[in-house]
Simulated scan of single mutants.
Amino acid sequence: MLLTTTGIRLVGGRSTSFQGRVEVFHAGQWGTVCDNSWGLSDAHVVCRQLGYPGAKAALGSAAFGRGSGPIWLDKVTCDGSEATISDCGHNGWGTHDCGHGDDAGVVCEQQGIRLVGGGFTSSQGRVEVFHAGQWGTVCDNSWGLSDAHVVCRQLGYPGAKAALGSAAFGRGSGPIWLDEVTCDGFEATISDCGHNGWGTHDCGHGDDAGVVCERGIRLVGGGSTSSQGRVEVFHAGQWGTVCDNSWGLSDAHVVCRQLGYPGAKAALGSAAFGRGSGPIWLDEVTCDGSEATISDCGHNGWGIHDCGHGEDAGVDCEQGMPENNSNSTT
């Protein structure tokens, strides 16, 4: 998947337009950005330039695959307030000491939508949308599962488990942006659904809408123990596995926390919970342990690997769930 605007684009994020390798257009040619000094302030500028509210992660080491052609920028130093990446400090166009193995990438805050107040679980919360430079909530009038499906898919989850109202995840603040939302369930974003118009409503924050999404990650093959199993992730409409190259406890911590567990006890490889089938989605996963989801971690790019299912990664999570887990199967 590629998203492009105003001389900048994200490439290699597959079906997900809000993440990818950063490429800039200069002197009639697209080229990449080197990851020397690459950080979240730089990523914020890129994401805002592309129309997103901001960035969730700044990635290096060609996390979304190696580009080709010129490496246009190196030693990018943004303070986060610049309008475009070219307004930031850098070594000069085409001046670098990098290879395409150092290509920089970003994960942007998706499509101006977020879930707030879900506690330990990032896949649930009060729905908030970004409009006119400000975050606001959605009213629960007419709020249902079709609407929740659109929200969850927009956030990269397979779909929704529940649509909640009456400020189930706490009352928001600021504007109530949407009311009488009517989705048929197939729209790409909540703003594509019918609604009363931005900011037109007869609600209070006690009517704030929420969702519980299918997490997009699951543990399979752990037998009667739901807190362990082969790691499978949902991407491009299909479940697939994770290769055990570079797989370690920091990566397992992110998986377990994404599933709602406190953390991980062990990171396992060599198909310890049996061989999966279908695509191998992730390889060379490198998390520092603080990421919200495994997709926020560094990796080779979706579907790029040199593995077989005999190398499927698994985890054993610490038990003690803040909520019942329904994303594990035997």
Rank of each mutant, 00 (worst) to 15 (best):
L2E: 15
L3C: 10
T16F: 13
Q19N: 12
G20Q: 08
G20W: 04
R21G: 07
R21T: 02
V22H: 12
V22F: 05
V24L: 13
F25M: 03
A27K: 13
G31K: 11
D35R: 14
N36T: 14
N36I: 11
S37H: 14
L40P: 06
D42H: 04
H44I: 01
V46C: 10
C47P: 04
Y52H: 14
Y52G: 08
G54Y: 02
K56V: 15
A57Q: 13
S61H: 11
S61Y: 12
F64W: 00
G65N: 12
G67S: 09
P70V: 00
P70A: 07
I71A: 03
I71D: 07
K75E: 15
C78M: 09
D79C: 07
G80Y: 00
E82D: 10
S86P: 04
G89M: 08
H90T: 10
N91Q: 14
G94L: 02
T95W: 02
H96R: 01
G99M: 12
G105F: 02
V106K: 12
V107C: 01
C108L: 03
E109L: 14
Q111M: 07
R114F: 02
V116T: 15
G118Q: 05
R126P: 01
F130Y: 15
A132H: 15
W143H: 10
L145F: 12
A148W: 10
C152A: 09
L155A: 01
L155G: 03
G156W: 03
P158H: 03
P158F: 05
G159H: 03
A160H: 07
A162H: 09
A162L: 11
A163M: 06
L164S: 09
S166D: 05
A168K: 08
F169D: 07
G170V: 03
R171T: 13
S173E: 09
G174Y: 05
I176H: 06
I176C: 08
L178S: 01
V181H: 09
T182G: 12
E187H: 14
A188C: 04
I190N: 08
C193T: 08
C193N: 05
G194S: 15
G194I: 08
N196I: 10
G197S: 00
T200W: 08
D202Q: 13
D202N: 15
D202E: 14
C203H: 10
C203F: 02
C203V: 02
D207P: 06
D207T: 06
R215G: 00
I217M: 14
R218F: 07
V220L: 06
G223W: 13
S226L: 06
S227R: 04
Q228W: 05
Q228C: 01
V231D: 03
E232V: 12
V233H: 08
H235N: 13
Q238V: 11
W239A: 03
W239Q: 05
D244Q: 10
S250G: 09
A252M: 03
Q258E: 15
G260L: 04
A266K: 13
A272T: 08
G276K: 03
W281V: 08
L282M: 15
D283E: 02
E284W: 01
T286L: 04
T293F: 05
C297E: 11
H299F: 06
N300V: 01
N300Y: 12
I304E: 06
H305I: 07
E311T: 04
E311A: 08
E311K: 10
G314P: 12
V315W: 01
E318Q: 14
G320I: 11
P322L: 02
E323D: 07
N325G: 00
N325L: 14
N325C: 05
